[in-house]
Simulated assay, not measured.
Amino acid sequence: MTNPIYLALDFPTWCETKQFIDTYDLHGVPVKVGMELFYREGPKVIDKLKANNHSIFLDLKLHDIPNTVMRAMRNIAALDVDIVNVHALGGSEMIKWAKEGLLLGGTGKDTKLIAVTILTSISDQTMNEELRLNGSVNEIASHLANLSYESGADGVVCSVHETKRIKQVCGPSFLTVTPGIRLNQSDKNDQRRIATPLEARKQGSDILVIGRSITKAENPKKAYEQALEEWNRGYESGNC
């Protein structure tokens, strides 16, 4: 993958999204479209981004009974995006049916199905005490990754700090998509398990998702280029 860094378009409207892309000349970079933008603008926002040559990760995190997810994914497949996702906590049947929906609704594009393990905002304490899931975040994330792998997913969303173990469990070709990426000097905001692009490359991440470190930067284009430079430095140093 020549450019594995997806820019999170966490804007409420297409107007603001387009203005940001145009202002900072970020045409054609891979992008993540989440709930906020998609629920406001609908499928038309995907068409507009595709017309601008953006690769798209549609981040809707489906989590429902298997039949409902299958039907939803069958409709999503027609959008011809690059990556879609579900919550691994939905279980193996839901993941299998999500994959089936992609195949039934697909138009020939090899859309990747990835499953969210544990959100990067969740700590061990939250997971153990509030969600009543025993074990560390790392252990649970690895278990959910293996469940996703065995259920036909192409990869998972996970923290950078879980990628090495997940690769060991699921194999090197199993995709690890890692949010919680921060450039040097960036704020952590509401995410706990974070890392820089260089650290992510060293740990074995395949795809990065970066939002506020770029969108809130004084010069977003320069920040995006910095992220790419850090990623490529990890490759050149042989630490990948």
Rank of each mutant, 00 (worst) to 15 (best):
T111F: 05
T117C: 07
I114R: 05
T107C: 11
D110I: 02
W97Q: 14
P66T: 10
E93P: 01
T120L: 08
M73C: 09
I114N: 02
I114T: 08
E139I: 03
L133K: 13
I118T: 01
M127C: 09
E93W: 06
L89M: 15
T117V: 10
G106I: 09
A78E: 15
I114Q: 07
A141C: 11
L102W: 06
V116G: 06
S142W: 08
K99W: 01
G91F: 07
I83T: 01
T111Y: 05
G90N: 10
L113T: 04
S142R: 11
L133V: 15
S136W: 05
T107F: 09
D82M: 04
N85Q: 08
E100M: 12
K112L: 15
L79W: 13
I83W: 00
N138A: 15
E130D: 12
I95E: 05
K112A: 06
G90A: 10
T117F: 02
A115R: 02
N67F: 13
V137Q: 00
W97T: 04
I118N: 00
N138M: 11
D64H: 10
R74Y: 07
S121M: 06
H87Y: 05
S92M: 12
L119I: 14
S92R: 12
P66M: 08
K96N: 02
T117E: 03
I65F: 05
W97E: 08
R71Y: 11
G108C: 13
A78M: 02
I114A: 01
G105S: 07
M127F: 11
